Simulated assay, not measured.
Amino acid sequence: MTALTRLPLYWRICLINGLVFLVGTVVLAASPATISTRVLVSEAIVLLVGLVLILFANALLIRSTLAPLERLTRLTESVDLQSPREQLSDDGHGTVARLFRGFNAMLDRLEAERSSSNAKALAAQEAERHRIAQELHDEVGQGLTAVLLGLKRATDRAPDDLADELRGVAEIARSSLDEVRDVARRLRPGVLDDLGLLSALAAACTDFSTHSGVHVRRGFAPGLPPLSAEKELVVYRVAQEALTNVARHALASTVTVSLSTQGDAVVLLVADDGVGIHGRAESTGIRGMRERARLVEGSLVVRTRIGGGTEVRLVVPTGTVTP
């Protein structure tokens, strides 16, 4: 049987057909059945039964031979290209086993290429965010600051009626400066680099509550294990995106943001009391969060809460942090 499995698929099928017809011929030759010059009804029935048995046996043998290809077909139709973790067993030898090993190797390469591409894309995105935030702070922010100083000097020297108008213009410039700083802070949270993850999450929650009017309950467990800079950034970005989704879609009144430990992992939980997802298609934001989680070997679950609302749960392994 091992020698048969080593044969190419084409020759295996030919051999199966040959064996089936050989057995049928031997059985027919050894049987006492005869065929008259004019075929009788009983003889026709015997021939028909024999033909049916031969075809049935041939179909069963070929089906068992091609069954692995059916498994391969089903997997190619159902495999999740975003996370192709399911693979085929490649036990045995021959063409089918080599095909399975080649398919599994292709899935491994696809996963490696996808992870590498996503890592490069997210790294480029973070670098671009950092560049834009820096330019907003250094160029636009400083330019608006200079405008405010000029307006103040002009206001001090202007007549009362003109001074009132200049003060209005200065207020608009000051508001624009605050917005620029707010955008720069969201693009690249300097507090994450300076004060750490907990302070950055607290600032993000405060900023979210101020702009959305949604009450935020925070729960950060004491004594959290240290994370690498990359993992801290992933936790922060997932929390940021989850809060953005709440503001856009949830119609919630309260959001809970917590950070705790679970074994050798850190768990981020963002839960709201809004309308829930209710089977909606996965958005680009959720896919982005999932990709970020995979980059640090974490896992992300987004689901509707039993009491209503949506829950985003990110689990990030702590690993070893290099000082």
Results as ranks from 00 to 15, higher is better:
residue 196 G to N: 02
residue 223 G to Q: 03
residue 204 A to C: 09
residue 160 D to K: 15
residue 159 P to N: 10
residue 160 D to G: 13
residue 162 L to Q: 15
residue 208 F to Y: 05
residue 177 L to Y: 08
residue 193 D to V: 07
residue 199 S to T: 09
residue 141 G to H: 04
residue 239 A to T: 01
residue 144 L to Y: 03
residue 239 A to S: 02
residue 246 V to G: 02
residue 182 D to P: 07
residue 136 L to Y: 04
residue 147 V to S: 07
residue 170 A to G: 08
residue 140 V to N: 05
residue 203 A to H: 09
residue 188 R to D: 12
residue 143 G to E: 03
residue 201 L to G: 02
residue 171 E to P: 09
residue 153 R to N: 14
residue 142 Q to L: 15
residue 163 A to F: 06
residue 211 H to L: 13
residue 149 L to Q: 14
residue 225 P to L: 01
residue 152 K to D: 11
residue 192 L to K: 00
residue 215 H to V: 15
residue 148 L to I: 14
residue 246 V to E: 02
residue 151 L to K: 05
residue 196 G to E: 02
residue 168 G to K: 11
residue 142 Q to P: 07
residue 156 D to R: 13
residue 134 Q to S: 14
residue 223 G to M: 03
residue 166 L to V: 08
residue 190 G to V: 06
residue 221 A to F: 04
residue 168 G to M: 12
residue 138 D to Y: 06
residue 137 H to E: 13
residue 175 S to E: 14
residue 152 K to E: 14
residue 156 D to T: 11
residue 212 S to E: 06
residue 204 A to H: 07
residue 201 L to I: 08
residue 141 G to D: 05
residue 193 D to L: 08
residue 218 R to Q: 12
residue 222 P to C: 04
residue 154 A to I: 11
residue 243 L to C: 02
residue 156 D to L: 15
residue 224 L to F: 02
residue 176 S to N: 12
residue 145 T to N: 14
residue 211 H to Q: 09
residue 198 L to N: 12
residue 149 L to E: 15
residue 188 R to I: 05
